[in-house]
Design a binder for these strands. Structure first.
Length: 271
DNA sequence: ATTGGAACCTGGTGGC
DNA sequence: TGCCACCAGGTTCCAA
């Protein structure tokens, strides 16, 4: 479910529920996520107030006075607000309980994680290598240009490399390359500066638009209010292999695997 | 130092 | 209906 736009929308939708609220209970049904859920979470969190909620790359951080919950949704994770005494869903692994509601972490594939740190979260092993956020002031055309020159991999993998730019996953990498008219196999360092400028603008544009539409909801993604995003209706290539390209109205969109991820593109438009 | 591939999981879908 | 292969919004780890 989660690339930058989905995580951003979820994060934002959680704020009115959990910000400045006191955690009253912790229930862990499944410790085995990408990393084990800390078994002292209850001791650490009950009585604590959530002071800040923020997104770093695809991570969501919940800060309290004593420390920070570091979470990541993996491929299928989600946080959902439920009534107290709700029926426990399958794959509901962790409940962070508040006075009047429960914040539930649900994740069928268990590639996500919930961890706790009492140090500066930015120094945490998982966060210290998170790349530049596309909406940060530090993300500039020149940063992108220098990064492109430093890599010999294909541009698709470059965009999905969260250690360079954080937040772009498979869906948006496909969409960004399509509107930028860049072939996904193109070697990063061979991209000319003019294309780099186009790419730069499109990265922000696509992600911004996806956020405005509430993210992309295929399969099961919903925000904390239970609302689905609608950017799936705006997708031009992802999930559209075999359809006629919307740019040239001539060639069929082709699907290939690049670094084990489905990649859809127009061989005519994306040279 | 880089990079491609396997691994971690569950659940849904389509073909036979 | 059942079984099986394959697919899925991500990331880390290991071997070449």
């Amino acid at each position: 479910m989660p690339e930058l736009p989905e995580v951003e929308v979820l994060c934002y939708s959680l704020i009115p529920f959990v910000l400045n609220k006191v955690i009253t209970r912790i229930v862990i049904y499944q410790y085995s996520l990408r990393y084990p859920v800390p078994n002292n979470l209850e001791d650490k969190l009950v009585g604590q107030t959530i002071n800040t909620i923020c997104r770093i790359g695809k991570y969501i951080l919940f800060k309290t006075q004593k420390g920070t919950i570091i979470s990541h949704l993996g491929m299928s994770g989600n946080f959902v607000i439920k009534n107290k005494n709700h029926i426990i869903a399958k794959n509901e692994h962790v409940i962070i309980g508040f006075d009047n509601f429960d914040l539930c972490y649900i994740d069928n594939r268990r590639f996500g994680l919930i961890l706790w740190t009492e140090n500066d979260p930015l120094t945490h092993k998982l966060l210290k290598n998170v790349g530049i956020d596309p909406f940060s002031d530090k993300f500039t055309v020149h940063f992108l240009w220098r990064s492109l020159l430093s890599k010999k991999t294909n541009i698709k993998q470059f965009l999905m490399n969260g250690k360079i730019i954080s937040g772009i996953g498979n869906i948006y990498a496909n969409e960004i390359l399509f509107i930028s008219k860049i072939n996904p196999y193109t070697v990063s360092r061979s991209i000319p500066f003019e294309k780099c400028q186009i790419l730069f603008n499109n990265i922000r544009q696509i992600l911004q638009l996806a956020i405005q539409y509430g993210g992309t909801s295929i399969r099961n993604y919903i925000d904390a209010h239970g609302i689905s995003g609608s950017f799936q209706n705006k997708l031009k290539v992802y999930g559209k292999a075999g359809h006629t390209c919307s740019m040239c109205n001539m060639y069929s969109l082709v699907i290939v695997k690049i670094n084990q991820r489905s990649t859809v593109y127009c061989p005519y438009c994306q040279k």
